[in-house]
Design a binder for these strands. Sequence first.
RNA 1: GUGGCCGUAGCUCAGCUGGUAGAGUGCCUGACUGUGACUCAGGUUGUCGUGGGUUCGAGCCCCAUCGGUCACCCCA
Length: 431
Amino acid sequence: MSSSSAIQAVRGMNDVLPDEIAYWQHIETIWRRLMTQYAYQEIRFPLVEAASLFQRSVGETSDIVEKETYTFADRNGDLLTLRPEGTAVCVRALVQHSVLQQQPVQRLWYMGPMFRHERPQKGRYRQFHQLGLEAFGMHGAAIEAEILLLTTRLWQELGLSALFKLQINSLGTPGTRAAYRAALVAYFTQHHAQLDEDSQRRLDKNPLRILDSKNPAMTAVLQNVPQMTDYLDEVARAQLNQLCAYLDKAGIAYEINSRLVRGLDYYTGLVFEWVTEHLGAQATVCGGGRYDNLVAELGGPASEAVGFSIGMERLILLLQAQQNLSSPVPDVYLLNVGELAEQNALKLAEDLRLALPDLSLLVHCGGGGFKSQFKKADKSGAKIALILGDDEAKQTTVTVKYLREEREQVTVPQYEMVEFFKKELGLRIED
RNA sequence: GUGGCCGUAGCUCAGCUGGUAGAGUGCCUGACUGUGACUCAGGUUGUCGUGGGUUCGAGCCCCAUCGGUCACCCCA
């Protein structure tokens, strides 16, 4: 433990050190490739927004806005909020720039940190990272199926398919949702005595949320609760069936969970979650749904929309449990001992890097004898130690020593090194 | 915001019913003065998270506080 005077990171905000970075980059690389394959475009937007954006979109009564946002006054008194999620910000950006008027159909993705002031626990932090995707201007189940196929592909590419289950539900239209909500309130009011403390509180605020209570004492009441699917109108039911047909055809297993609700107010129609049993209490790695009214509510043209977000940290926990990724190591560690060698090492390295763009070459800096430089070469993980001592420097040669295999070391003229590495490491040469 | 568990060397941890700190690993040096990884020998590190209390005496007991972790609420 470090001394008490050292400054630490803010609670719930984590550093990602180099030995962990391979997992992030692996996911990001696959994600970018997928997004290109499916023809989604990246969008970037600020971390800080007007506080009112989230009150109007995520919902004033939602816990996220009520007690979990980082909200503070700017120097001029404006209330600002560190974004707790991406969807509302994405919509704000599209509305502000009139993007949907010019091109109503949009397939977009984003990636970056989000902020919620909650107590940290496994897979949940105050600054966390989401991969998100939003598709605009498309009605029907096809686009819904597309994004579920796409997430399925992502799990496959990451080798995590076996860990995930897909749950889907439909929240219906605003009309049917209100009717269902009324029925729920009536039911729960009738059984008020059986509700736990949390659920009693939720009864007037957000009765839908009582449905996914984790309290075992609530299972009895929830057993006979009115089913959301019974309240869907024809259109919503047909669309859910159509989505199921698409998923069946693609061979994607799913479960219709009529108690699946989501905490953000803007959802309409489809909601879904990819859940896992391998992350303790944090089952949801990817959650999303349709939000056909949000664009208009934020001042844009009426526009249907569907999207989801993935919790990066949660995905990484799964990935780490599944496979070991190590950070890349240099191909070559260039030792230089002696005055003449030290003077020539950087130039030699520059020439090699220029000619061999794929070569990862680490030049030893900071002096030291052969022994200590070799120790560092070994620890760097490099396959090859390139030795530039005074003898080599005088003769414009360099000695190649193999650190990971039993082979004689060889001394080679410096002008032959490009060709040597090309053969030895299978590298391409810059023309 | 609420609750359980945990804070001893850079890391992983040991430390008896209270008697003023230890191992492994890492790191540095040497054996091998131009050769790592293996072996051997030496060296190196702590306000025992912090503050207070009890005691002749606290790493150990008590209180507070901070941090970590897991869970609740909520969510990715």
